[in-house]
Design a protein around this nucleic acid. Structure first.
Lengths: 133, 133
DNA sequence: CTTGACCTTCACATAGATGTCAAAGTCTAG
DNA sequence: CTAGACTTTGACATCTATGTGAAGGTCAAG
């Protein structure tokens, strides 16, 4: 598919899709006329990248992880040096702490909304909450 | 405590502590001489703010959430309008999706490292991993 | 009183993610 | 052939979170 369609389907502006490509987070083939051509899988890829970037991960890490998702068994021995493994272990801790932090905040918001629901007896917030629980 | 101590204890530069205050994410009293004076609780507060910012949350949201953590029961009815509740419900979805995204990435890194550990028979990465499991 | 280690505010610089616009090529419909 | 929709690259603007440094107060130690 072309960039316009990918953009519509992911709700990510074409500007950003080109930017991700420039940052090595997304690949594309080219049609004879030079237009970018994306495979179906690009949709998922873009969604993943978006999520990670919006979660504050450095593109460097995202690039590494995207690469990992593709790599298979034996290939690893050659690919992953000890230093890289250590780096990744550190990144893993970063991820864990981000998750913990967001989880805590999610719980805060959740319980706040729950209490609000009680407070607002005729609460229309209930409808909203319904879409979340 | 003063800003220097808070900075050392949180590993957050004083520049940022003042910035957070400017953004309404952190409060401080003032000594007679104008120096900022923080309570013990500021340490935890700063750590929370750091975690959220590093997770890509907009300061606007963080401000809201920090406020919520303080608010109690009855006060809510007055504080939380329907629109705010709807906003928060949306933010909650944002949090959920960030968490999901980070969790997926964490699992990716984890399983990569696990496989790596097999590949590197003498893997020193194991020691590193131990601190993570 | 002076020095040094703090603190204050203010301002300018930077890096990353994004918005926006311009100039120009491609292609399809009329 | 032309108009309109879509594409390309490239440049410039903006916002946020930061780094950095200037100019100047506070205060304890020597």
């Amino acid at each position: 598919m072309r960039i316009g369609e990918l953009s519509q389907r992911t709700h990510v502006p074409t500007r950003m899709l080109r930017y991700y490509e420039e940052q090595d987070l997304l690949r594309s083939d080219r049609e004879a006329n030079g237009y970018r051509d994306y495979p179906e899988s690009a949709v998922a890829q873009v969604e993943l990248v978006r999520g990670l970037i919006s979660s504050g991960l450095p593109t460097r890490l995202i690039k590494t992880m995207l690469h990992m998702e593709g790599v298979q068994g034996e290939e690893l021995a050659r690919t992953c040096t000890r230093n890289l493994a250590e780096d990744l272990a550190r990144e893993l801790e970063t991820l864990e702490s981000k998750i913990a932090c967001l989880t805590r905040s999610r719980d805060t918001v959740r319980s706040f909304l729950a209490r609000t629901r009680h407070a607002e007896v005729l609460g229309d917030a209930r409808a909203v909450l319904g879409t979340v629980a």
